[in-house]
């Protein structure tokens, strides 16, 4: 399926490269180098998503996002340079669906774009029930599915429950007891004995290298931490 993307980015070379890269995955990118022509083009139908840079020659990218949201719920992915106020980008205040910090990896750009387009597709996910995203990992509570880079991974119901609870508490040390309280599985006791086994199964499914887990980290003597920052190699 081919998607049509509208990109507003003042760096023409970057826009061209993004276009070239995404074309390989069947996405057609039309680039605009300033906000106003981009907004104008957006008035026509047929776009699947918007890639929006924050720093633009005419209008601030945050403002562009706000204007788009007044009349459209098209998925928006914002490109920011770290150091900009990214907390505002996503969420209610601006209504962008996701953001990527420059310099981003093209593969991650593709994965994020796919995720926001899929969430928006009619018959796809309910917007109120957003899935949880951590880098290339996507925990989809609605469909009870977990995807890494867009590829669905197999997990049992219990394992998904554990993963979901962890993903809802990123950056917190969760003891085994606390994990059990949060999951409240029906087969609590059986679950108790095998929690470490479940964790290793989940790791096998979602970690790039299960021997060196980066998403679910063991803190000896305390429990597990679901990393709040995944697949990002540098600090914001």
């Amino acid at each position: 399926m081919s998607h049509r993307l509208l990109m507003i980015e003042d760096d023409q070379n970057l826009a061209a490269m993004v276009g070239e890269y995404l074309a390989e995955s069947g996405m057609k990118v039309t680039a605009f180098y300033a906000a106003l022509p981009g907004l104008q083009a957006l008035e026509k139908d047929g776009w699947d998503a918007v890639i929006l840079d924050v720093m633009l020659p005419d209008i601030d990218g945050f403002e562009v996002c706000r204007r788009i949201r007044t009349h459209s719920d098209i998925p928006i992915l914002m490109l920011t340079a770290k150091g900009e106020e990214m907390d505002k980008v996503v969420g209610l205040e601006l209504g962008a669906d996701d953001y990527l910090a420059k310099p981003f990896s093209p593969r991650e750009l593709l994965a994020r774009l796919r995720a926001i387009i899929r969430r928006h597709t009619p018959g796809g996910l309910n917007k109120q029930n957003k899935s949880l995203n951590f880098g290339r990992l996507e925990v989809d509570s609605q469909a009870r599915q977990v995807r890494v880079g867009g590829v669905t991974k197999d997990l049992t119901g219990h394992q998904f429950d554990i993963l979901e609870v962890m993903a809802q508490n990123p950056g917190r040390v969760l003891s085994r007891d606390r994990l059990m309280d949060l999951v409240r599985g029906e087969e609590l006791e059986a679950f108790d004995r095998s929690i470490d086994v479940h964790i290793s199964r989940i790791r096998a499914a979602i970690e790039d290298d299960p021997k060196k887990p980066c998403r679910i980290i063991t803190v000896r003597g305390s429990g597990y931490v679901f990393a709040s920052k995944q697949d990002g190699s540098s600090v914001e």
């Binding site: 070379n13 490269m17 890269y21 310099p103």
Partner: peptide, 22 residues
């Protein structure tokens, strides 16, 4: 200045990174 320096330096870096992956 900080915001624009950050942006001006990181946009070409993104191009380089993209170029490498292409």
């Amino acid at each position: 200045l900080l915001a624009s320096v950050s942006h001006e330096l990181r946009t070409p870096l993104t191009r380089i990174r993209m170029g490498i992956e292409l």
